[in-house]
Amino acid sequence: MKVSAERCHHCGACVGSCPQNAIFMNDFILDFGEACNKCGRCIKVCPVGAITREE
């Protein structure tokens, strides 16, 4: 998954919604861990559309 730093508000909506607990946010850095299975819920939950699939 890819996060657009220009759009992201660091709100944590994706972190709390991730069914795999694969996203971690250390204040301003969003990390996707190995547990990510690309289900795409974070893409949907992000209020500002900051997350996309990595091509």
Binding site: G16, S17, N21, M25, V45, V48
Partner: peptide, 26 residues
């Protein structure tokens, strides 16, 4: 640690949410 809580999940408490139990806001 709020909505994004990790602490419970680290300890094995299942705090994961169903899609129908999440409201996303702006």
């Amino acid at each position: 640690d709020g909505f994004e809580s990790q602490v419970g999940r680290w300890a094995g408490i299942d705090t994961s949410l169903k899609p129908t139990d999440i409201i996303t806001c702006y």
